[in-house]
Design a protein around this nucleic acid. Structure first.
Ligand SMILES: NC(=O)c1ccc[n+]([C@@H]2O[C@H](COP(=O)([O-])OP(=O)(O)OC[C@H]3O[C@@H](n4cnc5c(N)ncnc54)[C@H](O)[C@@H]3O)[C@@H](O)[C@H]2O)c1
Ligand SMILES: NC(=O)c1ccc[n+]([C@@H]2O[C@H](COP(=O)([O-])OP(=O)(O)OC[C@H]3O[C@@H](n4cnc5c(N)ncnc54)[C@H](O)[C@@H]3O)[C@@H](O)[C@H]2O)c1
Lengths: 229, 229
DNA sequence: ACGCTTTTGTGAACGAATGCACAAAGTCAC
DNA sequence: GTGACTTTGTGCATTCGTTCACAAAAGCGT
């Protein structure tokens, strides 16, 4: 029976991808001292339609009050719990170049249960060097990190040519979630999740739409400078 | 009639999002001197199924040869053209903090027609300072950049609190595509595209799946250490 | 106590994306 | 030239995601 409220096995991927945004919006409301929001308000702050928001939230249970809305703190807690943010997630960053430095210094990790426990690099010249309060370690310390710190999430910030190799090392050590900044596809065994953050892809998608806009306005008169339609 | 081969108005968003990956894979083949690939090979290199690849490519025309495959250079050109990469796209980066520095130094822009023409920041102490060969400029030079360089794409790397303000300035100056690294929702008028790159969101999605894996293996016996199922 | 207002939660319709399976269209060997 | 073989391009079924629209549920004022 799907009537069971705790039958929340299988939240759609599209919904999961939006939960962090809802959580951020809720945090914003909480900071401004707002204790209750309607689906309309929360949706506006999250950049989605209210119907979509309600359907998304309905997948994790019935935490709203009809005629009133949602209690900010309670909903934030429920989403956090669903996302697994009520526990601490140790993270390791591999590749201490330009991007690795910026990531290591980034405070955004800590704000949601993510804790950078190690910085790794192949380059021996970097070993022992302190970056943002942490020493750079050699790659062969990975096994110890998984065993001792419970490391489960790895971030790859090496050049694309090394990424698959680094990925294999992470997986061999027991890491089962990987965030990849290198512009390449990673092959992993079943049970390992990979997500890619790719600047270049995003720019190309923007360029596609930009070109379409340019062509559209050129078509309906080369004079028009403003926004088409 | 949809029989017209140039009736490629309206390529699905999902397809557009994958074109950059196909292009990257093709570049890889070209570098290794391979001049022809089958949909099966290209799909494998791109991390998709061949049926999906073929359907995607069919949206931009019929560039394959039955019984043989696709000519690498020609297909790469067609995808580039479709994405609007045969022209040069001037890009400006706003916010020269940790992330801005890494982006300015990043060579990945140049590899596909994207050219960083300006670095901007509100902080007067940074003005005139050279980063990766470019001087940091004040925000009020935006109008000139749009007029003189044809700037159409802006990258926001400021704190979330300033992002909407910066975004408004970019839009006011005439920028119509924005890549946002700040963890917040941007409100823009019609005709302006925004894409968000969000580290924190990606980590939270990984955490969700990681938690699910942990729960699953706990459920079928707390002893199991390996990958479930 | 009761009806009026507000807002949720969700069934049902719709639309987009994926995967399957195969006919059509080409190559290549001989 | 012909037939066997390979691989594309696509119609169709299916799955996934979004939008609509409203009944059910809760608060509130009187
Ligand atoms: N810099 C950016 O703004 C930016 C933006 C988007 C994506 N990226 C991507 O992120 C990755 C890193 O970029 P970057 O600019 O920091 O590069 P970088 O060359 O500055 O740094 C790469 C680092 O990785 C280390 N490394 C190389 N091979 C390794 C291995 N096998 N094991 C462990 N460490 C290894 C190197 O020692 C170096 O410290 C690249 O793939 C790049 O395309 C960078
Ligand atoms: N550092 C990272 O690895 C990282 C990763 C993901 C996302 N982010 C996000 O990227 C953004 C920048 O991060 P950062 O670490 O570089 O921050 P930062 O504080 O180091 O740099 C911010 C820069 O923006 C400038 N700035 C602030 N307000 C401005 C305005 N109104 N107009 C123009 N410039 C302005 C500041 O002068 C400063 O130079 C943040 O939103 C952060 O959440 C950073």
């Amino acid at each position: 029976m799907t009537a069971d409220p705790s039958a929340r096995r299988g939240i759609p991927d599209a919904t999961v991808a939006r939960l962090p945004e809802y959580l951020r919006a809720l945090t914003g409301f909480a900071e401004r001292g707002i204790t209750s929001v309607s689906s309309e308000e929360l949706a506006a702050a999250s950049g989605v339609r209210s119907a979509k928001l309600r359907k998304d939230l309905s997948h994790l249970g019935s935490y709203g009050v009809r005629g009133v809305g949602y209690e900010v703190d309670h909903l934030a807690y429920q989403i956090s719990r669903e996302l697994g943010l009520t526990q601490d997630w140790p993270v390791a960053i591999v590749g201490m170049g330009n991007l690795g430095h910026a990531l290591a210094a980034y405070s955004g990790f800590a704000t949601r249960g993510f804790r950078v426990v190690a910085l790794l690099d192949q380059d021996e010249a970097l070993h022992g060097q302190q970056i943002a309060g942490l020493p750079v370690r050699p790659m062969d310390t990975l096994d110890a990190l998984v065993a001792e710190e419970g490391l489960a999430i790895g971030v790859i910030a090496t050049p694309a040519g090394s990424a698959q190799d680094v990925c294999d090392q992470l997986v061999a050590a027991g890491v089962s979630s990987i965030l990849n900044f290198a512009p390449c596809v990673l092959v992993v065994p079943d049970g390992v999740d990979v997500r890619k953050v790719d600047l270049s892809t995003e720019l190309q998608i923007l360029a596609f739409h930009e070109q379409r806009k340019a062509l559209a306005s050129a078509a309906l008169g080369p004079v028009a400078k403003g926004v088409a339609k």
